[in-house]
């Protein structure tokens, strides 16, 4: 899947099981909230950056991109703290957020989507006692991933069709001529997909070993 944020490398961080990395991330976030001092938070930030760049050998541009996505938030929050609390608290909270964002980015860049989905399925396994089948969770994730390119393709097609008719595709009128037909089309499509899946036995309860399944 080319869409993912995973960066392949041979490093100890990459080899670490996904579940452990998630636990480590949770541990870090608890630590920086429990000890909100500048050395603690600054140290966490330095450690995370070192782990990502040196140990996992991730490109610096990846961390920069994640940091830039929250840059304006951090600036605005710092200014807000400056106005309503004090500069030190502002620095601690901003650095803390930055450390956590980068730590999460390191986990994401070093873990394959399939490994993460496996963790999701494992975490969801207890749900089978309330009637949720784990296989259905895998199915719904797979369907969503397939629908993403399909919807953009359908959107392009409708836009072209309207343009070919000289129809308006902008403004309020554009909603009626493009967005509504698109939604109706993809809803019908989803319905067709579900019927095709059911026809192939997707709705069946798995057969219990040693006997026919109950009705």
């Amino acid at each position: 899947m080319t869409l993912a944020l995973y960066v392949p490398r041979a490093s100890p961080v990459h080899r670490m099981p996904a579940g452990w990395k998630l636990l480590a991330l949770a541990g870090l976030s608890m630590l920086v909230f429990a000890v909100p001092t500048l050395p603690m938070v600054g140290g966490a930030l330095v450690a995370v950056v070192a782990l990502g760049l040196v140990v996992a050998r991730l490109p610096a541009s990846l961390l920069v991109r994640q940091a830039r996505a929250v840059l304006w938030w951090l600036v605005a929050l710092f200014v807000l703290h400056w106005l309503v609390t004090d500069v030190l608290t502002g620095a601690v909270t901003v650095l803390r957020l930055l450390a956590l964002v980068l730590a999460a980015a390191v986990v994401t860049a070093t873990t394959r989507v399939t490994a993460m989905v496996a963790v999701v399925e494992r975490v969801c396994r207890p749900l089978q006692w309330v009637g949720v089948r784990p296989a259905r969770i895998g199915l719904v994730i797979a369907m969503a991933l397939r629908f993403i390119p399909l919807i953009s393709e359908r959107a392009d097609r409708i836009r072209e069709a309207q343009a070919a008719r000289g129809g308006s595709i902008r403004g309020l009128r554009g909603l009626t001529t493009t967005v509504v037909p698109l939604l109706v089309q993809v809803l019908q499509l989803a319905h067709t997909v579900s019927e095709a899946l059911d026809a192939r036995g997707a709705d069946d309860v798995p057969v219990r070993r040693g006997g026919p399944r109950a009705a």
Partner: peptide, 11 residues
């Protein structure tokens, strides 16, 4: 264009 766990730790 972001994703992964970072947004859940962000502001």
């Amino acid at each position: 264009g972001t994703g992964g766990l970072a947004p859940f730790a962000g502001p």
